[in-house]
Design a protein around this nucleic acid. Sequence first.
DNA 1: TACGAATGTGTGAACGTGCACACAGTAGGA
DNA 2: TCCTACTGTGTGCACGTTCACACATTCGTA
Lengths: 337, 337
Amino acid sequence: MSRPHRRATVHDIAAAAGVSRGTVSRVLNGGYVSAEARAAIEAAITEVGYVPNNAARALKMRRSQAVAFVALEPHSLFLDDPNIGSIMLGANAALSLADHQMVSLVVESARDTERVARYLSGGFVDGAIVVSARTRDPIIKVISELALPAAFVGHPPDLDQSIPFVGIDNAGSAQAITARLLAGGRRRIGMIAAALDRDSGIDRLAGFKAALGTAYDAELVADVPHYDYGSGVKGMRALLAAEPAIDGVFAASDAIAAGALEALREAGRSVPGDVGVVGFDDSTWAVRCQPQLSTVHQPAKQLGSCAAQLVLRQLRGEVLEPGGQLLPTPIVWRESA
Amino acid sequence: MSRPHRRATVHDIAAAAGVSRGTVSRVLNGGYVSAEARAAIEAAITEVGYVPNNAARALKMRRSQAVAFVALEPHSLFLDDPNIGSIMLGANAALSLADHQMVSLVVESARDTERVARYLSGGFVDGAIVVSARTRDPIIKVISELALPAAFVGHPPDLDQSIPFVGIDNAGSAQAITARLLAGGRRRIGMIAAALDRDSGIDRLAGFKAALGTAYDAELVADVPHYDYGSGVKGMRALLAAEPAIDGVFAASDAIAAGALEALREAGRSVPGDVGVVGFDDSTWAVRCQPQLSTVHQPAKQLGSCAAQLVLRQLRGEVLEPGGQLLPTPIVWRESA
DNA sequence: TACGAATGTGTGAACGTGCACACAGTAGGA
DNA sequence: TCCTACTGTGTGCACGTTCACACATTCGTA
C-alpha cells in the first residue's frame, strides 16, 4: 500500500466523539448542536486529523466552490504578455474573497483542449473565466452546451452572445492616443498592428484609422503576427523602409513599442525627437524602456476581478443581461512622445 | 432553477439503450460487451449528451487524474520572473502526456494559504508540484501531513527531506560564470545579490564568493530583496558608489542585470567596454537588453517536466529515494561581457 | 393538563460512479 | 453426460458527504 492509513471521515469523528454522523455534519455546517456535543466533536476532529473530502461534498452538493481560469494561448501569454498575470491575480483575489478556489487551466494543444473540456464538464468547477478566446474555439462550444456559468475577458465578434464579457474599448483607446500623437504635431504617423485575427488587434487598427481620417495611409501600417518584442523590431524596420520620413508610431502593444525603440535606435533616430512612439497596455515594459513609453493603461487586474464577479453573480442565481461591460482606459503620457 | 435540465448519467444511458448500468460502465471502461449492446449504448450516449461526472469518479476511485501546480509567490512570479511561465508549460506538457490535468493554484495571502490547503486535502488532486517554496511554508506542512505525492522545484535547505525535488546547481553555476568573468581580465568584480532568504539567492552568492576566493570583498556585494529590474538599478548604483573602479558585475538574475545596464548607462559607463555584466536565467530579458546578456541558462521547461515526472512516478506507486536531482546549466556567452 | 414550538439527536436515502459478484448461455474436451 | 472455460449481462454495494425526516426532550402558555 502506498497510503499508510485511510483518511479520517465523518464516521470516524462520530465514533470517536460518541455521536452520530448527522451531529458531526451539523457541527461542520451549522445547526442545532449542544455545547457538550460540539466540544466533544471538535476535540475528536483534531484528534483524528479530519479533513473534509471535497470530492464527496461536490458530488452531493453539486457545488465545488471552484472556478476555472482558462488560458487559451499560453505561449504568448506567459512569455510575452504581462497582462495575463495581472488578470489572473485580479480574478484570484475576487474569487478568494467569495471563498472560491481559482484553478487555472492551460491549453497548449488539441490534446489539452479535449482534456480541459472533460475537466470543465466533470463537476470539478462551478464556472469558468476564459481569456484570449479565439473565434470558434472548441472550449467555448463545450461551455455553452454545458450551460456552465462563464465570463470572457475580451470578446471576439462572433462569440456566443449569451455569455457575458468584460473588456476594454480597444478602438476608442487607440483612437484617443493616436489623436494625442497628432495633436503633438506629428505629420507622418504609422502603426505596427498585431494579432489581426483577434478582436483586440482589429479594433486597435480601426481606432487608428478613425483618428487619422483622410490622412490615413495603408502604406504606413506594418502587420505583425504577435504582440511581442521581436515583432516590434521587425515592424518598425518595415515602416522605416516604407517611409523614411515617418515621425510618429502607434504600436499595438508596449512590447512592440519596445521593439520599435530598438529598431529606431539601430536606425539612428532619436525618440521622441525624430519620432514619437506610443504603446498600449501600460505593462512593465512601459517603464523599463528608455525613454519610458506613453501608452494606454489597461486595467488588467480589474478585468480579472470583474470577470470573476460575472461568474460569481451567475452562481448566486442572478440572471445577467447578455452583453458586456467596458472598463475605462486612461492614457498615461510619459517621455516617448 | 438555474439549471434547466439535469445532466445525463449512466442510468439515463442505460434506460435509453435498454441495458443495465453495468454494461454502460463496461463500454466506458472496457470489458466484455457484445457488438450490438455497444452500438446501442454509443448511440444513446450521443443522444442524451452524456459527460461523465469526474467528482463521482474521483470519489469512488480515489483518483482525480489532476495534479496541482502551486505557485507560492505570485507577484514576483508572474510579473517579474519569466521562468515560472516556462516551468508551468513544461509541467503541463508532461502531465498532459500522461493524461493528467494540471490545475495551478495561486497563493497570494494567508487566506489563500488556508483555502489552497483545503483544496489540496480535498481529493480534487492526486499530487502537487510546488514552486518557490520558502522555509516553513504552511502549505508544505499540509502536504507532508497528508502524504500527498509531491515534488518541489528548488529546495530550501531545511525542507521536508522526504519530498523529492528538482533544481539547478545555483552555487556551481554562479561560480562558473564568475570565473569566466575573471578569465576575461576583470579585476574589480561586484555582485548584485538578491532574495537571500531563499536557497537560490544564498547559493548564487556562495558561488560568487567561491570563484573569487581571497579576492572576495564584501564591500562589492549589493544586497537587494527581489530578482527584479528596479532592484537591479538600485543595486548597481550602490556598487558604483562603493567602488567607482568596478569593472565587472555578476547580477543574480537577468532582470537585475537589465536594471544594472540601465544604471551603468545613466552613469556613463560602457558595457562591455568599461564594465562587464553577466546575469542568470537566460530569460527573455537576456536577448532584449542592449547589449545582449551573457548569462547562465536555466532549463525552466525541463524543470517543470522533471517535477511532473517525479509526481507521476509516485502516483504509479514507485517509491523514490529521497533527495533530488540537479539539471545542467550551460553558460551562454553573448555581448555584455 | 395538554399542546405547540423550539432545541437537540439519530437514521436512511441519495449524489454518480466503478467493481465484485452472481448468473446465463455457449462451446469444447474428457 | 458432466465439468470447466469463456463470454456477456444484471444487481448490490461502497466511496464520503449532506439533507429530509423521525424522534426525543424541554419549556412556555392556553
